[in-house]
Design a binder for these strands. Structure first.
Lengths: 330, 330
DNA sequence: CCAACTTGCTAAACCGGTTAGGCAAATTCA
DNA sequence: TGAATTTGCCTAACCGGTTTAGCAAGTTGG
C-alpha cells in the first residue's frame, strides 16, 4: 500500500488511526489514503499492531468448562461486552485441572492478552500470585482465593443456600439433607456453611447422614449409596438441598429410579439452574444465580483496570434469587 | 536475554525452537540457553512469533450463540482438540446477525487466525465466498451454503426428522404436526423437508394447520396461537415434532398451561436435546445430534487443510440417533 | 603445509505495524 | 527581503521474534 500510493507507511498509519488532523496530514493525502484503503479492503495486521503497541486488545477467559451452561452464559456476556470495547476473547477450558489451568494462563500471557478473567480450579495459588505480583490485570470469577486479595466477582453462596434451606423449612421440612461436592472449591465450602448456619438458625439437627460430599467425576455412581443412607429409617430425610444444578439432575434421576415422591416424601431445592427446570417433574425450585451480571461485572472491572491501572481490588458478591416451584412442596 | 547471556537472539531462537542440533549449536550453548530460559521463566511473545512466521496458531470460532448448549458443546470439543495441536481458539457470537457475523470474521482475519470454523447465519454469502476465493482455510458447521462448495460438517436433518416422524407413526399417531422456525437456515428447511417426505411416505395428510414456522425472536409469544390452531377440531393434532430443542421447551410449556396430556392426547418428539430432557414430565423423546463429533470433525478437517493446504472440500453429514422416552407414547 | 571441510555462531533482513524526531518547502512576519 | 513559523510528510528506530546467508576458527585430508 505504501509503495503503490507512494506515501510512507508512517503517514498511512497515522491517517488510518485517525490522527491525520492532529499530525497535520493534508486533507488531500488523508482522502487518498482512506479511499485507497477502502477500495482495497485494507485491514491492519493486528499481530503487528499489537506487537508495536505493546497490547493485543484481547482478553483471555479461563473457565472450567465452556459446555457447562453456567460458564457458557458467563462467557456470552463477557464476549459481548468486551467486544463493545474493542476486545476479542480467547477462551480455554481447564477441565478442573490445575496443570491445564496453569498452562492455559501461560499460553494466554504468551499471546499477550491484555487481561484475564479466570474461574480458577482454586488449586493454583502460584499463578494467581504471580499475576498479582506482576501487576497484571485480571478478575477472578465465581471462585476466589481467600488468602489472596484480588479482583473478584462471585455470588453470595452462603446467602443463596440459606434461602434454599429456609424455603424447605417454610414448607415444614425438618430433616433436611445437603448433597454437595467434595470441598476444594471455596464456593462449595461456602454453600456447606450456608446450609449448616441455616440449620442451626432454625435449630434443626444435622445428623451424620444428612450431608454428602460427592466426587466431581463420579457423583453419578455415588448417588444410589447417598440415597440409601438418606432415606434409611434413622435419617428419614424429608428435604434436600443440592449444591449445584448437575447434582440436582443426578439426584432427581436417582429419586425417580427409587420412585421417591417429590415433593411429598422428599422436597428439594436446587442451588443453580438448568434451562428446563421449570418443565421437570416436578418443576424444580431453584436458586437463580445472576450469571449474566457476574460476567458483566467482571468485564467492567477488568476494563477499568485496563484503562486506569490497578488502583484497588474490587470484590463483589452478587445476590441470588429464588424461583419457587413445586419440588419444594409449594 | 540475548544481552545478558551474550548470545545472539538468532541462536536463542534456534535453540528454543528445538532446532539446536540440526543447526549445529554446541551442546554447551544449548544448555546455557535452555537453563537460562527456564530459570527466568522466559516465554516467547506469540505476537512477534506470529508476525514473523506468518501464522498465529489461533483458530477462530464464529457461532450464533455460545450460551446455546448446542454450540457450547461444539465449542468445547473444538477447543480441546485444537489445543492438542497447539492452537488457541478465539470465539465470537453473532446473535444471528449477518452484520455482526461479517464484522467478526473480519476481526478474526485481522488477528491473523490461521483458520475459521463458522456456524453461519447463512445470510453472508459474500464473506464465505471471499474466504473461499482467497483460499483461506475454513470449515462451515451445522449451516451450509448450498450454492457454495466448501468444507462442511453437519447433521443429517432430513434423516433426523424422518426418525422423529417415524417414531410417532410407529406409536400410532396420524395427525402429526411440525413446529419449526421460519426458514432462512438451510438446516431448518431440511428439517421441514424431512417432515414432509416422511409424512408422504406414510401417506399421512399434512393439513394447513399442521406446520408452523415461528419467528426466532418471538416464538414464545407465538406459541399459544400455534396450539390454538393445532388443537382445534379440524386439525386435532395427535403428535408433534419440534424442530429444535428450545422450541420443544417452549411448546411443552404451552401444553402444560393448556393441560394437554402428553403423550396421551398429543405425543411429541424433539429434534435436538437439552440436558434435562430425561427428567421432564413426561421424559422427552429426542433426536440426539452427534454434537461433539461435529466439532471434532470440523477441527480435523481444518487441521488437515492447515497442514496440507486445501486440496478438496469435504462435506460430512453425521447421523443422529433417537432417544426414545415417554413423550412419544412409548 | 595448505586446501577443503566442518563447526559454531552471528549479522542482517524481514514480518507489518507505531511513533518520535526531523527536514524541506511554503507561508507568515518584521 | 530575510528570518521565523507552519505545513506536510518522511526517515529511522522499535516491538520481539524467525530465518537465511555467511564468517571465522578449528579440523581433516592429501
Amino acid at each position: 500500500m505504501s509503495k503503490r500510493l507512494n506515501i510512507s507507511k508512517s503517514t498511512i498509519s497515522i491517517v488510518l488511526n485517525g490522527h491525520g488532523d492532529e499530525k497535520r496530514v493534508s486533507k488531500d493525502t488523508q482522502e487518498t489514503i482512506i479511499k485507497f484503503a477502502e477500495e482495497n479492503n485494507y485491514r491492519a495486521n493486528q499481530l503487528a499492531r499489537g506487537l508495536s503497541r505493546g497490547k493485543s486488545d484481547m482478553i483471555g477467559l479461563v473457565i472450567p468448562n465452556i459446555s457447562d451452561s453456567f460458564y457458557a452464559r458467563i462467557a456470552r456476556r463477557i464476549e459481548t461486552k468486551a467486544r463493545l470495547s474493542g476486545y476479542n476473547v480467547i477462551f480455554s477450558s481447564t477441565g478442573e485441572s490445575k496443570e491445564r489451568e496453569s498452562e492455559l494462563i501461560e499460553s494466554m500471557l504468551d499471546r499477550q492478552v491484555d487481561g484475564l478473567i479466570i474461574a480458577s480450579t482454586q488449586q493454583n495459588e502460584e499463578d494467581i500470585l504471580r499475576l498479582k505480583k506482576s501487576n497484571f490485570p485480571f478478575v477472578l470469577i465465581d471462585r476466589r482465593y481467600p488468602d489472596i486479595e484480588t479482583n473478584f466477582v462471585g455470588v453470595d453462596n452462603v446467602g443463596g443456600v440459606a434461602m434454599a434451606v429456609e424455603q424447605l423449612v417454610k414448607m415444614g421440612r425438618k430433616r433436611i439433607g445437603f448433597i454437595t461436592l467434595k470441598p476444594g472449591l471455596e464456593a462449595i465450602h461456602e454453600r456447606l456453611v450456608g446450609y449448616q448456619q441455616t440449620m442451626k438458625k432454625f435449630e434443626l439437627e444435622v445428623k451424620d447422614g444428612f450431608v454428602h460430599e460427592l466426587n466431581y467425576e463420579t457423583f453419578d455412581e455415588q448417588m444410589p449409596a447417598v440415597f440409601e443412607i438418606m432415606l434409611n429409617s434413622s435419617n428419614d430425610i424429608d428435604g434436600i438441598v443440592f449444591a449445584t444444578h448437575f447434582l440436582t439432575a443426578s439426584g432427581l434421576r436417582e429419586m425417580k429410579r427409587r420412585k421417591v415422591l417429590v415433593p411429598n416424601e422428599v422436597a428439594i431445592v436446587s442451588f443453580g439452574q438448568m434451562s428446563a427446570f421449570d418443565l421437570v417433574d416436578p418443576p424444580i425450585t431453584s436458586i437463580a444465580q445472576p450469571v449474566e451480571d457476574l460476567g458483566g461485572r467482571a468485564v467492567d472491572i477488568l476494563l477499568e483496570n485496563l484503562k486506569d491501572g490497578i488502583t484497588a481490588y474490587k470484590q463483589e458478591m452478587l445476590d441470588s434469587s429464588i424461583e419457587v416451584r413445586k419440588s419444594c412442596g409449594a
